[in-house]
């Protein structure tokens, strides 16, 4: 992978320059954090800051990671280490419709794999990927705690229960822009 910092500082590639409003929002959030009481515990706010940054930008590109690292006075490598560890964080842009198939035990027993296969087939992507047009993201997550409705599919915040392979095309059709 080429170094992702290469484009930093150029408006056409640096996302923090491309979206000054979003950058300002993140900066305001970071500046308001109560960091002075315990200067040695600054990194304790790292995960919540990354949650916020991902909410704002949709994902965590290298420049955003660098910005957070600078504010919290830790290295970019450490920030990246955290991002790559937790499945909730992503450094790649994701589709507007985040389709997540629950693959918890109850859903697995009730055939979640067949549903996942059908989504893979229809979208022609694998889990963890987005369609080239940026519309769909396909993912698998572990147990949303709605086991009685198994198998369960979440599209953004909407929950579909008792999903069958036949329903897959209907679910995709629901995702109209």
């Amino acid at each position: 992978m080429p170094c992702s910092c290469q484009g930093a500082g150029k408006p056409e590639t640096d996302i923090t320059l491309r979206y000054p409003d979003k950058t300002a929002e993140l900066n305001a959030y970071l500046d308001a954090l109560p960091l002075e009481a315990h200067p040695d515990r600054k990194r304790g706010v790292l995960i919540q800051s990354l949650h916020r940054a991902q909410q704002i930008f949709g994902y965590l590109p290298a420049e955003v990671q660098a910005l957070v690292a600078r504010k919290l006075e830790i290295s970019i490598a450490e920030v990246y280490g955290v991002i790559s560890f937790y499945s909730y964080f992503t450094d790649k842009p994701v589709g507007r419709y985040k389709i997540n198939i629950c693959t918890g035990t109850a859903c697995f027993v009730k055939g979640a794999n067949k549903i996942l296969d059908e989504f893979r087939r229809q979208l022609n992507i694998r889990e963890g990927e987005s369609t080239p047009d940026g519309k769909f993201f396909l993912g698998a997550l572990r147990c949303v705690g709605a086991c009685s409705l198994a198998p369960v599919v979440m599209v953004n915040d909407r929950v579909y229960g008792n999903v069958t392979a036949k329903m897959v095309s209907e679910i995709l059709a629901d995702c109209a822009d």
Binding site: I47, H51, V82, F89
Partner: peptide, 22 residues
Amino acid sequence: YGAGAFVCGEETALIHSIEGCR
């Protein structure tokens, strides 16, 4: 907040996570 890591249910891992580490 956690960020999607099952192992963070283990108490030492959980503490590291609160400290902003892996």
